[in-house]
Measured scan of single mutants.
Amino acid sequence: KKYKIKVYVKDKKTKKWKKIKEIEVDTKEEALEAIKKLPPNYEVKIVP
């Protein structure tokens, strides 16, 4: 079972969220580790 991490950042001009990358991992633990490495201003969604 794979997890997709969708990473969004808020556009300063439009104030809208835009997706900047998608990370695919195998476990939820890996997903949480990957999220920890991202800057705090990123919004993250984990999709099972």
Rank of each mutant, 00 (worst) to 15 (best):
K2L: 10
T14A: 05
A31D: 00
K28F: 15
E30L: 08
V44D: 01
K13Q: 08
K37M: 11
A34E: 15
E29C: 11
P40W: 07
K13W: 09
A31P: 00
V47H: 08
T27W: 02
D11F: 04
I20L: 10
K16M: 07
L38C: 05
P39V: 05
Y8F: 07
A34L: 15
A31K: 01
T14W: 04
K10Y: 15
K19G: 02
K12Y: 10
E30H: 05
Y8G: 00
K45E: 08
L32K: 07
V44E: 01
E30C: 04
L38F: 13
L38M: 12
T27E: 02
I20Q: 03
V44Q: 02
E33H: 06
L32A: 09
K16P: 00
N41K: 12
A34T: 12
K2Y: 09
D11C: 07
K13P: 03
K21C: 14
Y42P: 02
T14S: 09
V44T: 08
K6T: 13
V47A: 05
I5S: 00
I20T: 03
K10A: 04
E30I: 05
N41T: 11
E24N: 10
K4N: 06
K16V: 05
K13G: 07
L32R: 10
Y3N: 00
I23T: 04
V9A: 10
V47I: 13
A34R: 10
P39G: 11
K12C: 06
K10W: 15
K6R: 09
E33I: 10
K37L: 12
V47W: 12
K15I: 01
K37F: 06
I46W: 08
K10Q: 13
E33Q: 13
I20R: 03
K13E: 10
A31N: 00
K13Y: 11
I5C: 04
N41A: 09
I5N: 00
K2I: 06
I23L: 09
K19L: 15
K4F: 07
P48A: 13
N41G: 14
K37V: 08
N41I: 11
K19M: 12
I46Q: 01
D26W: 13
V7G: 00
K1S: 13
K16W: 05
Y3M: 06
E43L: 15
K4I: 13
E33P: 01
I46S: 01
W17E: 00
E33S: 09
I5T: 00
E29G: 06
W17Y: 09
K4L: 14
K18G: 03
K13V: 13
E22M: 04
V9I: 12
K1T: 12
L38E: 02
K37H: 13
W17V: 02
K1R: 11
T14I: 03
Y8V: 00
K28A: 09
K19I: 09
E24S: 12
Y3Q: 01
E33L: 11
K6L: 15
K21R: 12
K10L: 10
K13N: 08
V9S: 06
E43G: 15
Y8R: 00
P40C: 11
V7C: 08
I20D: 01
K6V: 15
K45S: 07
K28S: 07
I23S: 02
K13L: 12
E43Y: 15
P39D: 10
V9T: 07
Y3V: 04
V9L: 10
Y3E: 00
Y42L: 10
E43P: 05
T14Y: 04
K19H: 04
L38G: 01
V25N: 00
K21P: 01
A31V: 14
I23K: 02
K16C: 10
E29A: 11
K18E: 04
K19S: 03
I5D: 00
V7H: 00
K16Y: 05
V7E: 00
K37A: 14
P48R: 14
E24V: 13
V47G: 05
V9W: 06
D26A: 10
I46Y: 04
P48K: 14
D11P: 02
K37E: 09
V25P: 00
I23V: 07
V47M: 11
W17I: 02
D11Y: 06
V47K: 05
V7M: 06
K36F: 05
K10F: 15
A31G: 04
K19P: 04
V47C: 10
K45L: 15
K18D: 02
K12S: 10
E43N: 13
K19N: 03
T14N: 08
I46L: 09
K16T: 06
I5H: 00
V9H: 06
D26R: 06
D11E: 05
K45W: 15
K28T: 07
K1Y: 13
W17K: 03
A31C: 10
I35D: 00
Y3T: 02
E24F: 14
K37D: 11
T27N: 08
K36Q: 10
V25G: 01
V9G: 05
I20S: 02
V44G: 09
P39F: 14
V25S: 03
N41S: 14
K28C: 15
K37Y: 07
Y3W: 14
K37C: 07
K21W: 13
K19T: 03
P39H: 07
Y8C: 03
E22A: 03
P40A: 12
V7R: 00
D26S: 14
Y3I: 07
I20V: 14
E29D: 10
P39L: 11
K36I: 07
K21H: 11
I35C: 06
K1E: 09
V7P: 00
K6P: 01
T27A: 02
D11V: 07
K28M: 15
N41L: 10
T27Q: 02
K2W: 06
K21V: 10
I23Y: 13
L32E: 10
E24W: 14
V9M: 12
K45A: 09
V9F: 08
V47E: 11
P40I: 09
K15D: 08
P39E: 06
E29Y: 07
T14R: 08
K12D: 08
I46C: 09
L38A: 03
Y3R: 01
Y3K: 00
K21L: 14
N41H: 15
K37Q: 12
K45H: 13
K36H: 08
K4R: 12
K28Y: 15
K37R: 13
K37G: 11
K19F: 14
K18A: 04
P48V: 15
K18Q: 07
Y3P: 00
E22C: 06
P39A: 09
E30A: 11
E29V: 07
E29N: 06
K16E: 05
P48E: 14
T27D: 05
I46K: 01
K12H: 13
W17A: 01
V25F: 14
I5L: 13
K21T: 13
W17G: 01
I46G: 02
D26I: 05
I20G: 01
N41Y: 14
K37W: 06
K45R: 15
E24Q: 09
K18C: 06
T27C: 04
E33F: 03
I35V: 10
